[in-house]
Deep mutational scan, measured.
Amino acid sequence: MTVRVDGVDYEFSSLEEAVRFALKMAKSKGAEVQLHNGTFHVE
């Protein structure tokens, strides 16, 4: 599972870890999280 934040990809071994990271980053940026074909994008 890959989480992309500001064009940088972060790899996670589990969906749970990836979701937690994506939500944490989105909250800190006041951004939204989108899921596309198994890849999260924080914008």
Results as ranks from 00 to 15, higher is better:
T39Q: 13
E43T: 13
G30E: 05
M1N: 06
N37D: 13
E43C: 15
G38V: 05
Q34P: 04
E32C: 15
A31L: 12
M1G: 06
S28C: 15
Y10Q: 01
Y10H: 04
S14R: 04
G38A: 03
V42R: 04
E16V: 09
V42G: 11
T2I: 11
S28N: 11
S28A: 13
F21C: 12
A18S: 01
L23A: 09
H41K: 05
T39M: 14
E17S: 04
E11N: 12
A22D: 00
Y10K: 01
E16S: 07
L15P: 05
E32L: 13
M25H: 05
L35E: 04
V8S: 02
A31V: 13
K27P: 02
G7N: 05
V8I: 11
G30C: 14
M25G: 01
F21D: 03
S14I: 03
T2N: 05
M25T: 05
F40H: 11
M1W: 15
A18W: 04
T2Y: 12
V19R: 10
E43K: 08
E17P: 00
E32H: 13
S14K: 03
K29C: 15
D9I: 12
D9F: 10
K27C: 15
A22R: 02
E17F: 02
L23V: 12
V19E: 07
A18L: 05
S13T: 11
F21V: 01
Y10W: 06
K24C: 15
N37T: 06
E32W: 13
R20E: 13
H41E: 13
E11K: 13
A26E: 04
S13D: 11
E17Q: 06
R20W: 07
L15E: 04
E11I: 13
A26R: 04
E16T: 07
T39S: 14
V5E: 00
G38K: 07
S13F: 09
L23M: 10
G38Y: 09
R20L: 09
K29R: 13
V42N: 10
S13P: 09
K27V: 10
D6Q: 04
V19A: 06
Y10L: 02
F40N: 10
F21I: 01
V5N: 01
F12A: 00
V42T: 09
V42D: 11
F40M: 14
V33F: 04
M1F: 15
H36A: 06
L35C: 15
A18K: 01
T2W: 14
F40V: 14
V3P: 00
V19Q: 06
M25A: 06
R4Q: 06
S14P: 00
A31E: 05
D6N: 11
V19W: 15
M25P: 00
V3W: 03
H41V: 15
E11S: 12
L23N: 13
V8R: 08
E16K: 09
G30V: 05
Q34Y: 15
Y10I: 03
F12S: 00
V33Y: 02
T2P: 01
D6W: 05
F40T: 11
F12P: 00
A22N: 00
F21N: 02
